[in-house]
Amino acid sequence: MTAPTPRHKRATIFDVAAEAGVSRGTVSRVLNGEPYVSAAAREAIEAAIAKVGYVRNTAARNLATQSSGAIALIVHEPDSVFIDDPNIGAILLGANAALSAADYQLVSLLIDDDRDSQRVTGYLGGGFVDGAIIVSAREGDPISQAIADLRLPAVMIGRPDNQSQLPWVGIDNRGAARRITERLVATGRRRVGMIAAGLDRDSGRDRLAGFRDALGASFDDTLVSRQPFYTYAAGVAGMAELLRAAPDIDGVFAASDAVAAGALEALRGAGRRVPADIGVVGFDDSTWALRAQPALSTVRQPAGQLGARAAELVLDQVRSGGRPADGALLATEVVWRDSA
């Protein structure tokens, strides 16, 4: 029978001190970036760390400081949407960059069903993260309420009506949707519909409201296809529904670029030319917009900046122990391309 391989002993701060010929306290001051250590002692300690292979025990340090050094990014979407939506990736990268600059680790938590909500709620209550960023929160979302109850530093990307206790960062979805719809109508379109999605969250409701604002008395609810998620499949299904309801439709506002890309596919299958027969606009200015044929007219939202700003607001709370009272709105712009 083969004997088990002995476990390698982890180098300690005492090993570093012995190798460098200094006290443990001097090593600790160097590790913590404190002053009052001579250049010679600092050089000897750095050489000793390299020689003995010392790696700082972050878990022990966090236990002593009552800090995990981690921030959760909670995404309340099905797995398919997480993969399909480039905005989520951009938010994640923006948040990660801001957290990395502050020496914090990003922890991604995905919620697809009620069981996930219970699991994540328990995780958050266990002290494994110092704060949270919530993406795609919905009405009645138990996670945002649990975070408020835990008094965990947190920021929501978006503004659900049911959770006023948490600070937020977002965009003016309603105003942006109104502006791009008005521009679509200004191209001479007379029968304009919308593929609305995500109506269980503020972004989806606000984009539909902005579309309604732009059309005013011309708004026709029968020209709105309501879909559950911001996905390519929703665009295919929604466009097919609108073509059945109104074969003479000549303009479509899709609630996201992924939805718009699906709509373009459905229109190609139906033999409809874009933009000659029908103009299509999206929302996000994601990679879907540039890959689409023709390239999408859309609303550019700063997804990466949303993630970075949310991370900064969470870190401000972690450091101060308080919560900002207000949210932050970031600017959007209409980007006009060939699809309309």
Rank of each mutant, 00 (worst) to 15 (best):
T12V: 07
G53Y: 09
E265H: 14
I74V: 15
A17L: 09
R61D: 00
T26I: 13
P324G: 01
G21N: 08
D116V: 07
G235Y: 08
F14E: 11
L109M: 14
A60H: 04
G89E: 02
A340S: 14
A154V: 02
L223T: 06
D250G: 05
E241W: 03
G140Q: 13
A59P: 06
R56L: 09
A47M: 06
A72M: 03
N173Q: 09
V16C: 00
L215I: 05
F128Y: 03
A214I: 11
S164G: 01
V129Y: 02
A90K: 13
I88T: 13
G122V: 08
A255G: 15
A240Y: 02
A325S: 06
K9I: 07
L315V: 14
L242P: 04
A258E: 14
N162W: 12
L199P: 11
V224Y: 06
A209F: 05
I49N: 02
L73G: 01
Q301R: 13
G175L: 05
R205W: 03
Y104A: 00
A44C: 02
V22P: 10
F211C: 00
I249R: 07
D200E: 13
Q105Y: 03
G188A: 03
L313S: 00
Y104M: 03
L106K: 11
G188D: 05
S320A: 10
I143V: 14
D116W: 12
A64I: 12
V75R: 08
G307D: 05
G238W: 14
P4G: 01
V129A: 06
T65M: 15
F229A: 00
D103N: 13
A48C: 05
A331P: 07
A233R: 15
L208N: 01
F253S: 04
G251Y: 10
I83L: 10
A3T: 12
R42P: 06
G282W: 12
G127L: 10
L106T: 15
L63Y: 03
A48P: 12
I134D: 02
T287V: 11
D79A: 12
A60F: 02
D277M: 11
P153E: 08
A270L: 04
Y232F: 15
V169R: 04
S23V: 12
E333G: 01
Y36I: 04
T26L: 15
G131C: 07
A18R: 15
G279S: 03
